Simulated assay, not measured.
Amino acid sequence: MKLPNKGVIIPWLIPLVLLISWQFLSWVGAIPERILPAPTQVFVACMELLSTGELVDHVSISLGRALAGFLIGGIIGFLFGLFNGVFRFADLFFDTSIQMLRNIPHLALIPLVILWFGIGETSKIFLVALGVLFPVYINTYHGIKSVDKKLIEMGKAYGLRGKALFFHVILPGAMSSILVGIRFSLGVMWLTLIVAETISAQSGIGYMAMNAREFMQMDVIILSIVIYALFGKLSDVIARYFEEKLLKWNT
Results as ranks from 00 to 15, higher is better:
residue 199 I to L: 15
residue 225 I to L: 11
residue 249 W to G: 06
residue 215 F to P: 12
residue 237 V to E: 12
residue 203 S to C: 08
residue 205 I to H: 06
residue 197 E to R: 04
residue 233 K to M: 10
residue 227 I to K: 02
residue 217 Q to V: 07
residue 226 V to P: 03
residue 226 V to Q: 03
residue 230 L to V: 13
residue 214 E to F: 11
residue 215 F to H: 13
residue 243 E to Q: 06
residue 194 I to W: 04
residue 204 G to R: 05
residue 211 N to C: 05
residue 217 Q to H: 12
residue 249 W to D: 02
residue 224 S to I: 01
residue 210 M to I: 15
residue 230 L to E: 13
residue 195 V to R: 05
residue 220 V to E: 02
residue 232 G to W: 05
residue 236 D to L: 05
residue 231 F to P: 03
residue 203 S to Y: 14
residue 232 G to A: 04
residue 232 G to P: 03
residue 206 G to D: 11
residue 245 K to H: 06
residue 235 S to D: 10
residue 195 V to N: 06
residue 238 I to A: 12
residue 207 Y to K: 07
residue 233 K to W: 09
residue 223 L to I: 05
residue 225 I to W: 01
residue 237 V to W: 11
residue 232 G to M: 02
residue 195 V to S: 04
residue 210 M to T: 15
residue 215 F to L: 15
residue 226 V to A: 08
residue 216 M to R: 12
residue 226 V to S: 03
residue 231 F to E: 07
residue 204 G to V: 13
residue 240 R to G: 06
residue 230 L to M: 14
residue 238 I to R: 01
residue 223 L to S: 04
residue 193 L to W: 05
residue 204 G to P: 13
residue 199 I to V: 15
residue 203 S to N: 14
residue 218 M to K: 14
residue 206 G to P: 07
residue 198 T to F: 09
residue 194 I to H: 00
residue 227 I to Q: 02
residue 215 F to K: 14
residue 239 A to P: 00
residue 222 I to H: 04
residue 212 A to G: 08
residue 231 F to Q: 05
residue 244 E to C: 09
residue 210 M to E: 11
residue 240 R to N: 09
residue 231 F to L: 13
residue 202 Q to F: 14
residue 242 F to Q: 00
residue 243 E to V: 06
residue 196 A to W: 03
residue 216 M to W: 11
residue 236 D to Q: 07
residue 210 M to C: 11
residue 198 T to L: 12
residue 205 I to C: 10
residue 193 L to M: 06
